[in-house]
Design a protein around this nucleic acid. Sequence first.
DNA 1: CTATTTGCAAAAGCTTTGCAAGACG
DNA 2: CGTCTTGCAAAGCTTTTGCAAATAG
Lengths: 172, 172
Amino acid sequence: MTSEVVRRPAATVAEGAVAADPATTIERVGVLLRARGERMTRARRAVLTVLACDGGHLGAEEVVGRVAALDAGVHRATVYRTLDALADLGVVQHVHVRRTGTAYHLAHGGREHLHAECRRCGAVQDLPADLLDDVARAVLDRDGFTVEPTHVALSGLCAACVTGDPPGGHAR
Amino acid sequence: MTSEVVRRPAATVAEGAVAADPATTIERVGVLLRARGERMTRARRAVLTVLACDGGHLGAEEVVGRVAALDAGVHRATVYRTLDALADLGVVQHVHVRRTGTAYHLAHGGREHLHAECRRCGAVQDLPADLLDDVARAVLDRDGFTVEPTHVALSGLCAACVTGDPPGGHAR
DNA sequence: CTATTTGCAAAAGCTTTGCAAGACG
DNA sequence: CGTCTTGCAAAGCTTTTGCAAATAG
């Protein structure tokens, strides 16, 4: 009999991470903000809710869209400023992706995973967090350059596209 | 498609600049173009000259500027189209860099080096071509994703910026 | 009450596109 | 001469900015 199937999602469940629950996230971030003399506003709540609910990688303009659906009064420019402010706080991370420009997601508490983007269909795939550790060390030794592996997506062709037919269209 | 375009490894691609002589480059590319029913034009000559002379990584708009200085009649849009055409030909490679948008350079005959961009000062640094070979193999095995390491620049902080003072300003 | 944020509207950077005129082979 | 290319001008897309008004704490 299967007593306790404690099958944690294999992924790293970061402790102290920002939970994916909007309400909790908002409250926690509120504390962080106030600690810096900043404020929790309607716009910021909306952005956090969108990010917490999705969990994936949303392009800025995509966030704008969902925020608008959630709280029509929030302006596009505000979303950009908010994303920026939250990134400063360390609550939000962004990855530079070709397709959507920049993709945002809530920071896990611990290590972030990396990303790979298919240059043909635009799909973004997650990769293990430690994938570039060796490379990063090598580059640091060689040139003193500190690689931040989460900051840009690796580029290439996904399994589907490399065989010949991409599901969707054709991105560059 | 098989790599049947056997170009003579005319120049040993050692370290250092591409050392491509504009005239030679233009002639070679002219042959390639005609072989595909395309043509060698004034604009294309200008773009190739700029790329051959610089050897570094030039942003598209930067190429536009230098081309204009060389041949005032060449329009910005034409430079973009030319860069695209030459990339199709395989003569030009581009790297996605945050700062300048997209950086172009002549393709070496053989393997291309990789790039790392400082997210603070914007400097772009060259890295050995084989740096990501292991990673690429691992990702291919794991997910069937074919990483193309030259296509995007790694991001991070260069030696100067990580210590605290960036030479120039502050890029994101 | 006061500093932080927002909405708005407009601008800015980069890249693409439709077409007729021009150039290359 | 027939195509491939270009110039031009304008639009597209994402992101940023200056300000006065709104709002959190």
